[in-house]
């Protein structure tokens, strides 16, 4: 495949991710994948790609790219300022580049992780069904590791004419806003019965994200969550899923994320998948509150989110712009106020 760009500076921590690697957790391989699925899917939709195409997940600061061949790029997620040569380029929009251009993606001004997409998707080998990088396992992505200066990435071939996908924008109304306080919706369990007052504290008090926050998990600090006196300090090790909130011996919660397969402590609650995108954008020092939701509510959120994404995709296969879509969207009865709020929050 043609080389698309060379990394002149890698940014703080940049890895290639798609939506994840599934079916291998029984062998100890975690799902990995873009932490902010919404941003990764949206950047692909902007470029006319399948939503599972590989993108570059950039943490806190972005890279400097030297363009090697004409292509179309877009950046979504955290507000990292972008310049193309000396010109400012907008986030949440697609823009064409040509050989010799230099694209600089700066420090996140809001949010934590931004996603760089390219028409066709980033072409790295598919390992066990996915292009996602799992750095501890040294597999997937570009050579199983974060990017370094000098790396050259290629794009997959795209059937569609890429001109169609230039200068597309996702209007502000659909973009999440990133603050420094986050409300995470979570379903109690699987071991909520290990806690009594601890469960009330968990769903009512505020927690702060510590610097121990990465793709494996986020450690929080806040009121100590105590388990029932009759319950053991640990559980027999069992599989953990992204979003599981583990309470280790000290009582400070850890939100387990997508590079973890097994946990040995009781999990008081599980953050719903759509809100993992919020965790992806939260920085150390930010505050978190957990709000209890039911499985049915989580399913409704998932359904509405899916409908929105398919609407966005339909829009791109036609001629209408997102601005037109926006008007339809507001008139449309299938989206109620709740989902709009959801979109603004995430």
């Amino acid at each position: 495949m043609p080389a698309a760009f060379k990394i002149s500076r890698p940014g703080a921590y940049s890895t290639v991710q798609d939506l994840g690697r599934f079916g291998y957790q029984r062998y100890g391989v975690p799902p990995s994948g873009a932490l902010d699925r919404f941003a990764a899917q949206t950047v692909n939709v902007l470029l006319g790609n399948h939503e599972n195409c590989a993108v570059l997940e950039m943490t806190m600061s972005g890279p400097v790219l030297e363009i090697l061949a004409p292509c179309t790029l877009a950046v979504t997620g955290a507000a990292m300022p972008i310049t193309l040569n000396a010109t400012i380029v907008k986030n949440w929009s697609s823009f064409p580049v040509v050989k010799g251009d230099v694209v600089t993606i700066g420090h996140a001004e809001a949010g934590c992780r931004a996603y760089l997409g390219i028409n066709g998707g980033i072409d790295v080998p598919v390992i066990m069904g996915s292009r996602s990088c799992y750095t501890d396992g040294r597999l997937g992505g570009h050579e199983g590791r974060p990017l370094v200066a000098g790396d050259i990435l290629a794009s997959c071939e795209q059937q569609i004419d890429r001109d169609t996908f230039e200068n597309r924008v996702i209007p502000v109304a659909y973009r999440p806003t990133y603050s420094s306080h986050w409300e995470l919706r979570a379903i109690p369990g699987p071991q909520d019965d290990y806690f009594d007052q601890g469960l009330e504290l968990f769903f009512s008090q505020q927690f702060t994200i510590t610097p121990q926050a990465n793709r494996m998990g986020y450690r929080l600090k806040g009121p100590t969550i105590e388990r029932k006196k009759t319950m053991p300090a640990s559980i027999i090790s069992e599989p953990s899923l992204p979003g599981g909130v583990q309470i280790p011996e000290g009582g400070d919660p850890i939100i387990l994320l997508s590079e973890q397969t097994v946990g040995g402590y009781a999990k008081i609650a599980t953050v719903i998948r759509d809100d993992i995108a919020k965790i992806a954008q939260a920085m150390p020092g930010d505050t978190i509150r957990f709000r209890k939701v039911s499985i049915e509510e989580a399913r409704d959120i998932e359904r509405k989110n899916k409908e929105l994404l398919s609407l966005l995709k339909d829009e791109y296969s036609g001629e209408q712009s997102f601005a037109v879509l926006g008007k339809q969207y507001y008139k449309s009865e299938i989206f109620n106020e709740k989902i709009m709020n959801f979109l603004r929050q995430i």
Partner: peptide, 16 residues
Amino acid sequence: RHVGERGLLVEFSAEI
């Protein structure tokens, strides 16, 4: 036991 909206834990025993 439910593990969020996309996981189901099926327990066979309390011990190993």
